[in-house]
């Protein structure tokens, strides 16, 4: 049976992890390679690296980091942040990334999704969507969820699928950072409206939130950052709990 995936997300700036990390047995908490290896060892199913650097020079640092991560771990990983062209993706995939995640660039120029799917295959194209409910309507937001658009979430999700995305990474800005659980209602509706896998993101605070998003939210994978990095939830404990609730996970 295909298992539900647990995905720790690492924010990267200038080749280093940004948010504080509280792992007891890390020599260097800012070293993404060491942290990635640790998560792989704990049976995390995939990793996401979100680069928040901006300049060209820093992009090269990212490509080098991707190469080091690929050398160190033997589970799949996705790289996102500031990707806007076929050339950007080519470098990352050649360095060993399995998938790339695009967000604002896809909203600004939706053809980018088609271009990437044609050049590299749908399997490596993850489209990240940040959305927020405004007057009862779920609207797509840009720039890390700060800038609202008039694009309806469900219309956009369908368009993204049709253009060749292989997966959706959905973050509810209403839930992100609250630690009160994932946006299960809207996630379940997304699962009904599109037929590609969906990663739930935003709102993880407790073990039970993950079980809820897999059962009620129909999510195929769940992504979280701080609860893992600060050791509030450990990946092995989480997976044991999910298994106890008859949710298929890889142990």
């Amino acid at each position: 049976m295909l298992t539900k995936r647990i995905i720790p997300c690492l924010d990267i700036k200038d080749g280093r992890t940004v948010k504080g990390v509280n792992f007891v047995n890390l020599r260097d908490a800012g070293d993404p390679v060491e942290l990635a290896a640790q998560y792989a060892e704990q049976n995390a199913d995939e990793l996401v690296f979100l680069d928040i650097s901006a300049t060209e020079q820093k992009r090269k640092t990212l490509a080098n980091l991707v190469l080091k991560v690929a050398e160190a771990i033997d589970i799949p990983f996705t790289v996102g942040g500031g990707i806007s062209s076929v050339e950007d993706v080519d470098v990352l995939l050649k360095n060993g990334a399995d998938k790339v995640s695009i967000n604002s660039a896809a909203v600004k120029r939706p053809e980018l999704i088609n271009e990437l799917a044609t050049a590299f295959g749908s399997q490596c194209v993850v489209v990240a969507i940040d959305a927020k409910q405004i007057k009862g309507e779920w609207l797509v937001h840009l720039v890390g969820g700060k800038v609202p658009t008039e694009i309806n979430l469900f219309d956009w999700a369908k368009e993204v699928e049709q253009r060749g995305a292989g997966e959706l990474l959905f973050t509810s800005m209403d839930h992100d950072g609250t630690k009160a659980g994932f946006a299960n209602e809207v996630l379940a509706r997304l699962s009904r409206e599109v037929n590609i896998p969906i990663i739930a993101s935003g709102g993880a605070g407790e073990l039970k939130h993950f079980a809820d998003t897999f059962t009620h939210g129909k999510a195929d994978a769940a992504l979280a950052a701080s609860v893992f990095h600060f050791g509030e939830i450990s990946v092995p404990d989480l997976k044991q709990q999910l298994k106890a609730q008859q949710i298929a996970v890889r142990l």
Partner: peptide, 27 residues
């Protein structure tokens, strides 16, 4: 089913040397 299949799934009914030392139901 959702397409693509993406993630970890089990293998079963394994035969031959390629699967030496790998459990049936391995992910």
């Amino acid at each position: 089913v959702k397409v693509p299949q993406m993630g970890w799934n089990t293998i079963s009914n394994t035969k031959g040397p390629l699967f030496d030392g790998i459990d049936d139901k391995e992910y």
